[in-house]
Design a protein around this nucleic acid. Structure first.
Lengths: 211, 211
DNA sequence: CAAAAAATAGTACATCTGTACTATTTTTAA
DNA sequence: TTAAAAATAGTACAGATGTACTATTTTTTG
């Protein structure tokens, strides 16, 4: 990719994250870069293309993250690693999540990809839950749709924890992300068996040491 | 309140909910009403005033709803009633929740009120949790901050379930709200004691009959 | 009824935005 | 070295938006 094009993505990401998508015009970006608006639109014919580029970069980053997961006997361990990595990737492109509703409403390309992504993630979690139950780390369902609904709650949390931070007027830094990681991860705890809870505490304590 | 002013609120609420706050200009509203833009701005000097009016109407509606709660022996029963009523009120002003981040960012009056509201709601839940534990409906905390974090998750769910529906491209109707009510309410279940679970099932089944 | 107040209409303005278009400069390739 | 391609700058345009302002009409009040 062209050097200027790369720089446009760098600068626009910074501005979008800092000020929100609707407060950053093409001129905001070109001014900050010290280039002309004509040059900017030469590299990105449409404003949406910039946002799409960021979205697909996030998707790619997350896929790369997934390859770095250390597979362990404990499915719970895998799950917690996934959550950790996803939250970090999301944080880097946080403007997307803050404006998710608008972006999906206005950009067909992103919308269609996101819908497919959601479907496959639901299937993925379905298998993880099965595996957790088989391994005796998670208890069986008691209520109707209990784990289907649990997944939907997890999805809301994953999609909107960033927006919630904005709403709470809290600063966005590494400490806060760690706190929210803990907040979301604790969702799993009450569904775990005694063995699962033992593993959970083991993993969480290990993590406390490793970073 | 003036008749025209009332009508402005009615029509703008309908348009905001249907098309999203950013897709509804003052002219969209006045055109739909068949009045002039000058007349519109006579009643609301600033666009923000319209949004503020809706916000405080939601707050008022919810307070009215709260007075209708039937207090019972079971704190859980009270809690589930509160959730039900809150979700219905929110639904009526759903555009506020869909654009919560932007609204709070741009409107100081709403932001300050929302912050206070959040604080008092946290205290309220703190007491409810205590009461639930005392009454033997909810188990004691096992993890650090377990119920503080549980509350924060509930808050994210309450603030963004509407946005999530938009993101999932699902229609907004009574059935979907009932489904999401179930999804959110199920959060409580794994924290309940045997007695609490018994009450939970009792209450949920009763509700199935009563509406 | 007449004066005052409230409500309504219409217009104008300044600003912002994405993007299309042209001209010029710089880089690449043959 | 020279023609072609890529990159950059600058300008212009059309549309939308909130809001300020004035003039007119309607309603209220004394």
């Amino acid at each position: 990719m062209n050097k200027t094009k790369k720089r446009i993505l760098e600068v626009s990401l910074e501005l979008f994250n800092a000020n929100g998508i609707s407060n950053v015009s093409l001129r905001t970006i070109s001014d900050k870069m010290g280039i002309s608006i004509g040059n900017l639109t030469y590299h990105f014919k449409k404003r949406d293309e910039i946002i799409e580029a960021h979205y697909f970069q996030l998707v790619e980053d997350y896929e790369t993250s997934m390859t770095k997961i250390k597979f362990a006997d404990s499915t719970l361990m895998v799950l917690l690693q996934m959550s950790y990595l996803l939250m970090r990737d999301i944080y880097r492109y946080r403007f997307i999540l803050v404006d998710l509703v608008h972006i999906l409403q206005e950009d067909t390309i992103i919308r269609e990809h996101y819908i497919e992504l959601s479907k496959s993630r639901e299937q993925q979690f379905d298998e993880i839950f099965k595996s957790l139950i088989e391994q005796g780390e998670m208890r069986k369902e008691i209520l109707d749709n209990e784990y289907k609904f649990f997944f939907l709650r997890l999805k809301i949390l994953a999609d909107f924890w960033i927006s919630s931070l904005r709403v709470e007027n809290r600063p966005l830094n590494e400490d806060v992300i760690s706190e929210y990681e803990e907040i979301i991860i604790q969702s799993f705890f009450p569904y775990l068996t005694d063995q699962g809870r033992k593993n959970y505490l083991l993993i969480r304590n290990k993590k406390l040491v490793s970073h």
